[in-house]
């Protein structure tokens, strides 16, 4: 599994489009912050972080998901791996770990970049603001990983890049959770507390010192473990298409 991870990391780190994409994203964000800087107040560094991070599961997570999950389908790498005798469970777990690691890297660096931009413009975040910014980043990191795990079921079950990318984007832009929330509000309002947005919200609040961390963490792990198990099951059921 380590060799597989090392190979995938090597491939990703030599993917020129990844550097161009994240570079363009960083430059665009820096320019938007600069343009808006005239209207900043003491609260802007936190409220803007909340607004900006909201887009990251789609903008950053979407790219990582495509690079890790759907590139394999396009290049027939998945077929090659199975052909070489690599276990399907190992493939699913490796992809998931890499997605979690790369997302963690992105969501650890983004608050630093955000804070650095505001500091350069004369609005350096206070200690409390840093805690809130990192708690928000943690929330969206958890959402990104969970969305990848959920969309992974489609990657392995259908082995169609378009379907899996569309599902990931719908999840990342909260279209799916929005629709489910509307339905749940009518039929079972209490169940909306068990949606990923609500679970990750509770983890964020706990990280900021309000509420318990245990229940939402257990729910989150259960969510991701179920999605992983379903991915393995779907992958085992699906014939490899040549």
């Amino acid at each position: 599994m380590l060799k597989l991870m090392r190979g995938e990391l090597y491939r990703l780190l030599h993917k020129k489009s990844m550097y161009i994409y994240f570079g363009a994203l960083a430059v665009t964000y820096a320019l938007v912050v600069y343009v808006r800087s005239g209207g900043f107040s003491a609260q802007s560094v936190v409220s803007d972080a909340m607004n900006f991070f909201n887009f990251l599961p789609a903008l950053a997570g979407g790219f990582l998901f495509a690079a890790l999950y759907t590139d394999d389908l396009n290049s027939k790498n998945l077929i090659a791996l199975v052909g070489f005798g690599v276990s399907k469970t190992k493939i699913v777990v490796t992809r998931f770990i890499l997605m979690a690691l790369l997302s963690a890297l992105v969501f650890a660096l983004v608050p630093l970049f955000h804070g650095m931009l505001y500091t350069l413009l004369g609005w350096a975040p206070a200690q409390v603001a840093w805690t809130t910014i990192y708690a928000a980043s943690l929330k969206y990191f958890l959402m990104t990983v969970a969305f990848a795990a959920l969309a992974g079921i489609v990657v392995y079950g259908l082995q169609r890049t378009t379907f899996s990318m569309v599902l990931y984007i719908l999840l990342a832009f909260n279209v799916v959770s929005g629709l489910i929330t509307v339905v749940l509000k009518t039929f079972a309002p209490n169940l909306s507390n068990y949606l990923m947005a609500s679970i990750s919200d509770r983890i964020m609040l706990a990280a900021m010192g309000s509420g318990s961390l245990v229940t939402p963490i257990v729910l989150y792990v259960a969510y991701v473990a179920c999605a992983g198990a379903l991915s393995v099951l779907a992958f085992h059921k699906k014939e490899m298409e040549f």
Partner: peptide, 15 residues
């Protein structure tokens, strides 16, 4: 574009 955008934003939205 960013410089022009900032001037426009400041003139229009910064009160």
């Amino acid at each position: 574009g960013a410089i022009w955008g900032k001037q426009y934003y400041d003139a229009r939205y910064v009160g």
